[in-house]
Amino acid sequence: MASTTFAAPPRPRPRRLDRSRLAGLALVAPSLLYLTVFVFIPVVKAITTSFTVRDRDNAGNYSYRVGTDNYRAIFETETLRDNVIFTVLIAVISVAIVFALAYSIALALRFGKGPAVRFLSRIYVIPLFIPSVIASYAMITFLANHGFVDGLLQRVGFPDESFPRIVFDWKGIVITQVWLSLPFMTVLLSSVLLEISDTLVESARDVGASSWQIFRHIVLPLSAPGALIGITFMFLGVVGGFTVPYLLGPNAPQMLGVSMVYYMTNYFEPYVASTQAVVIFLLSLVAAIYYVRQQFKREVR
């Protein structure tokens, strides 16, 4: 059942089509209503907030006006600009590593056999079931300097202070993001790989193709569209994330999710915070539009 896709039937029967359009709208309506109240209205509010500029006089009194100063601040204030760049970099690195690992797991699950593969299929999903707060916390106790790993290494003779800084560093964010996102990406890639027929792979092998050639010329191209969708979704998750970079990240630069919360709760600058939210949104929107286009291409296919 997994190998065929049945697209929405474009029937050339005008009356039924109209009914179908109406029914379609009716079925989507509850979700749409929900999203309007709980997502779209707050989003519009946040966007309006981002154009509110607050000025402060010498005595600490505030005045408000409409303007684009907050946006300018994000690209002109060095720390804020660095945060944007840092966020994108971390997202790209995390996604790349997860992708490589998840692809390897998915390949092993799809084409491998034996007890090791069965074991693999049981363990790779575990992080999916661990709340991100706990995962971050576990990683801190595990990877901190003078943490669990450092302790073991020193036991076997590594000198003190030779352990690299992972916690409170970009490495900590990346490792924990990888840990957390691995199952999702693997599940996704596995299902994509399932669609590649055994016959195709075997016939390639029959004409003498090596494993690498099969991977390079058959598996990779066929799984690319699905893979790109997984990448998009993970990118969205990492760019907007808070828990992991807050608990494991460096003091500076900060990922935008963290910076936004600081601006809101600590610096009492909700306007700048909203602006950061909108910037993340715009970054993500590029990925989202790409995702939708990809989806349509697949349907056409």
Binding site: T49, Y246, V261, Y262, M264, T265, F268, P270
Partner: peptide
């Protein structure tokens, strides 16, 4: 506690907005 617990967000935003 507010300082200690960053995820606490309601803060000023509510009032401001």
């Amino acid at each position: 506690w507010l300082r200690r617990a960053v995820p606490v967000v309601v803060a000023l935003v509510v009032a401001a907005a």
